[in-house]
Structure formats: C-alpha cells, structure tokens
Simulated scan of single mutants.
Amino acid sequence: MNVRQVIPRDAIPSVNGPEFGSAYDGNPDDRVVVFEPESGPVRAYPVRYLHYHEIVNDEPNGQPIAVTWCPLCGSAIVYSREASQGTLEFGVSGKLAADDLVMYDRETETEWKQSSGEAIAGELRGESLAVLPAALITWNEFRERHSDGLVLQPPGGESEASGPGDDPAPIDYDAEPYRAYFEHDGFGLDAHRGGDSRAWKRDDIDPKAVVLGLESDGDALGFPLPRVEDAGNVVTASIGEIDVVVFAADGIHAFEHLGFNFEYEDELFFRADGVRWHGASGESGGGRQLTRLPARRLFAFAWQDDHGEDGFWSPE
C-alpha cells in the first residue's frame, strides 16, 4: 500500500467538542451525513463543513462516534471510537494511503485507513473500527424527515483545504474546494491538484461512481449507484448471513431485507406489502421501519482499492 505524507499533521483540523443547533446556513440541496444515536435527536453533519475538517469526534448521549469524510474518495463513513485500548479521539494525519485519508488516534498514535477502518501502522495495527449505520442525503430531505433533528454548527478556524499551499488558512464555508475535482473524470490527489489521474482499467464502472459498500461475516459487496438505478432503483442480495435490500433514493441506502417484493413507485418511494416505503429512511406509511445496515459510501476506485476488481454487485 502506497502511504505518503502530503501535508502536516492536523493542518486539516478535526472537530472536537462539536456544537449543534436547529438552523443551517447552507443550501437545501447540500449533502449531510446523518446519524441516528441510540437515544436523542438525529444529527446531521454537512459535507460543506467536512471538506475543511474531515473528522468530527462526537459523543451523542455518551455514544462515542467519529464522523469521517475523505473528499478525494467521496467516502462518508461513521465509526465507533471504541477500540481495544478504550475510547479514541481521531485527527487528520496529513498522510494518504492510496489517495485515502489516513486518520490517527491521539491516544496511541496508531494510523487508520479511513475507507476500510483498518489500523495500518502503530500500536493497534491489525484492529478495525466498527462501522455504524448512517446515511448521506440532502439537507432539505433531512429537515423534512427530522423536524426536531440537530445539525452541526460551523466549527470555524483555519484549514489547509482553504488555501493553495500546505499552511492552514481561514475557512470560508461558502467556497467549494473540491468542486472541480468532483466535476472532472480524473481521480486521486494528483488529479485534484491538476496533474495526471491514476489509471483506471475498466469501462463498466466509472472510477468516481458512487458505491455503497456492505460487509458481513467476512464477505463484502459494493453496490454502484448507476447499476442499482439501471435495475429499477431497488436490488436485493445476500452478504454472508444477511439478506439486504438496496434503494436508489436521494442517494443510495441499504436495509435488512424482510422478504418483500419492493417495486419502484416514484422519486423516493417504493411499494411493498400493501404500503409505501420511503427509500432513504426505510419508513413505511404504516409506521413500520426497516433496519438500516452499517455501510460505507464512497467512490468506486476507493472500494476497488480495498476489495478488488470483483467486489461489486452486478445483475445476474
């Protein structure tokens, strides 16, 4: 694995002791990472802020979590901060592993690959962080579904992502430091900085196609959003011992499959067992709730780096 130091440690500052409120100063179609704690209001973490911080160390009602985001990999993953040495606090190491964020914990200085949650160097090498259920949806959808939900308030400060060099600069959350990268075909750090893209030796999946990665009992399967859309916006599969249903609805979402025959109805809704189901939340019109599965949302190239060329779902 190619690991390289790109910027100084903590030049991109993690958020520690985050503050929350009901108001958000961004646009309705801004994406937010949504986490539902074991108790208390649902929380939203705007990607608009995560561009400049990449990690939020949070503890909703005593549940220690790390909300993580790697812009280069498009990877939004929420992890438990519990490990064999206790509760960890994470920071941005300034290193990349195959163009993926390398986190470090401040307790043992172990380094962790963000997309896989695996400790790749240090005292805890070989351990893996537990993935927690989360979703990536628009702010507008979040507010409509969770009227009493809380949203991360602007952390402020300085970040390397704000300036042209390696030194932190004052943050302007209205700027879009990765807009050109997301709009162009190239991928990886060099492409982001205007250089050559990494090679991509397949034409059936775009390297920056959005993928939802699921793992169970040692098996892993990534669901490319375009393939799910082409299959009618809903697919079912088995991963290890778990049957899953995956919806394309304001992003891509995976739930435990109860055996219903889901049929696409319109932009966000599916029909099964005589009622409508909301594909992004798993809620039914009859008050039932599908169980959201722990998942990794990321670009196809990052999933392939971790799981190989055959790690993608495809229709039979």
Score class of each variant (00 low, 15 high):
24 Y>E: 15
120 I>W: 01
204 D>L: 07
202 R>V: 12
151 V>C: 10
43 R>V: 10
36 E>F: 01
45 Y>T: 05
52 Y>A: 00
205 I>T: 14
22 S>P: 00
76 A>F: 04
261 N>W: 12
299 F>E: 11
184 H>V: 07
28 P>D: 15
150 L>K: 09
10 D>F: 09
93 S>Q: 05
255 F>S: 07
311 G>N: 09
115 S>M: 12
202 R>T: 01
316 E>Y: 04
273 D>Y: 09
99 D>S: 05
197 S>C: 02
25 D>P: 07
3 V>T: 15
141 E>W: 13
121 A>C: 06
171 I>C: 01
158 E>D: 11
16 N>T: 15
169 A>L: 08
146 H>L: 02
151 V>I: 15
241 E>I: 06
46 P>H: 08
44 A>S: 11
264 Y>V: 09
234 V>S: 06
118 E>P: 05
262 F>R: 01
104 Y>S: 03
77 I>M: 06
146 H>D: 08
216 S>Y: 02
183 E>V: 15
115 S>I: 15
3 V>D: 12
27 N>D: 15
281 S>E: 11
15 V>G: 03
179 R>Y: 13
219 D>N: 09
261 N>V: 15
308 G>E: 10
263 E>T: 14
218 G>S: 12
192 H>A: 10
276 R>G: 05
27 N>L: 14
9 R>K: 12
43 R>F: 04
300 A>P: 00
8 P>L: 14
47 V>S: 12
63 Q>R: 10
90 F>N: 07
287 G>S: 13
67 V>G: 00
95 K>C: 09
203 D>S: 15
186 G>S: 10
73 C>E: 09
17 G>V: 04
78 V>Y: 02
217 D>S: 07
259 G>I: 03
75 S>D: 15
215 E>T: 09
